[in-house]
Simulated scan of single mutants.
Amino acid sequence: MTTMHRTTGATRLMMLAILFGMAGRSAAAQWSGGVGLADSLLAMGRVASAESLYYAASSARPRDAAARAALGRYLASRGALRIGAVLLEEARLFGGDTARIARSLAPIYLSLGDYRSLATLPASPLSPAEQKRVRWLVSHPSVLEFPDSAATLTYRSIVDGSGIGVLSLGIGDRRVDALIDPRASGIIVRGRAARRRDGLHTFGDDSSGVVAVVHELHIGDVTLGNVPARLIVDSARGTPRSRQVTIIGLDVLQRLAPTFNPTTQMLTLRRSGQIAQVVSGTRTPMLLDEQGFRVLVDDHWVRAGSGATAKLLSTRPWTLDAKRGAIVLQ
């Protein structure tokens, strides 16, 4: 769970106005406004103030579905996935919008590898092919083979904003260069390479391509088993080379607390998925949700594909501490 921070005097006054009510407004309206204010503060980059208000709203009305769901979404976006999922499940029990909550829970369950909960999710947003894959994953869960406590391998950083870098992967018996893209989820194989199905299990297609699983994904000496994937086969001749790429989403690596060093072009992965709470460097808040990966730069949320983020992550060593909702810049 993220750390509570002290709020400014101005923010305390705003919170008190909500906590003790404003004349002529019902309790429900007050707490709807509290969540809205927290959302606004978060959008403005005032993370500590927003967090305090999310907690205050949920604590004061613990059975209010909107406040519960808002706190759950916030905590999940800061890396507290399991706690966020529990709060969203409670919000559904308290009468929250089942379909909207399902859209929030689906990627959280997928990141947690909680395929059983995903398979039984009410009002599931998954396509029939995705549902078929999830049912298969219930009895074939993802596995991790890690020979040591940490693994170090090479990658090539890039500065054009298309991704974090390029990493060599093994999919079955073949080697591919994959773009590390914080905007993507799982493994995406695009172009001619998507026609090769060795090392893959497919479940049918939907509007986004062929739904699949990579049986064994090799990242250096680390092996991930049964990793969700998507195949996008471009049928037109002369498909641009830029679209014939393999992509690995940052969500695949985040569970291994990766450290990227663009100076040495080395990537470090950790079996525990954790780094020390006190570590040298500057902690910068991050969000990872349906809007993608965003970092707080100069009190503004900056998307992964922006020039500012690309420059930041391609010139300084950094560690993704997703469980604490931050990146640590060296």
Rank of each mutant, 00 (worst) to 15 (best):
T2I: 13
T8M: 07
M14Q: 12
L16M: 07
L16T: 10
A17Q: 14
I18L: 15
I18M: 12
G24T: 03
W31T: 03
G36S: 10
L37T: 07
L37Y: 08
M44W: 05
L53H: 04
S59H: 06
A60K: 08
R61N: 09
D64T: 00
A66C: 05
A70K: 03
A70S: 04
Y74W: 15
Y74K: 00
L75D: 01
L75I: 02
L75G: 01
S77R: 01
R78F: 03
G79Q: 03
A80H: 07
G84C: 08
G84V: 04
G84H: 06
V86W: 03
E90Y: 11
R100C: 07
R103Q: 14
S104Y: 12
A106D: 08
L110F: 09
G113M: 08
Y115H: 10
S117M: 07
L121A: 06
P122V: 11
P122G: 12
P125I: 04
A129S: 15
R135S: 15
W136R: 01
L137T: 00
S139R: 09
P141W: 11
D148S: 15
S149Q: 13
L153G: 11
T154G: 11
Y155I: 06
S157T: 15
I158E: 09
V159C: 08
D160A: 09
G161P: 05
S162K: 05
V166G: 02
V166N: 15
S168L: 14
L169Y: 10
G170T: 05
G170Y: 07
D177Q: 15
A178T: 02
D181E: 06
P182M: 03
A184I: 03
I187Q: 01
A193K: 07
A194G: 05
A194H: 04
R195D: 15
R197D: 12
R197A: 11
G199I: 02
H201M: 09
T202L: 06
S208P: 01
V210M: 04
V210A: 00
A212P: 01
V213Q: 00
E216T: 13
H218T: 14
D221I: 00
V222M: 06
V222S: 08
P228E: 01
I232M: 07
V233K: 01
R241D: 14
S242V: 12
V245W: 07
I247H: 02
G249P: 04
L256A: 09
A257V: 00
P262S: 03
T263V: 15
L267W: 02
I275Y: 03
A276V: 03
Q277R: 12
Q277C: 09
V279Q: 14
S280P: 11
P285I: 00
D289L: 02
D289N: 14
E290Q: 13
G292T: 04
R294Y: 12
L296S: 12
D299Q: 07
A304V: 06
A304D: 13
G305W: 06
A308I: 03
A310Y: 02
K311F: 12
L312C: 08
R316F: 12
W318D: 10
W318P: 13
D321C: 10
R324N: 15
A326V: 14
A326L: 09
I327E: 04
L329A: 02
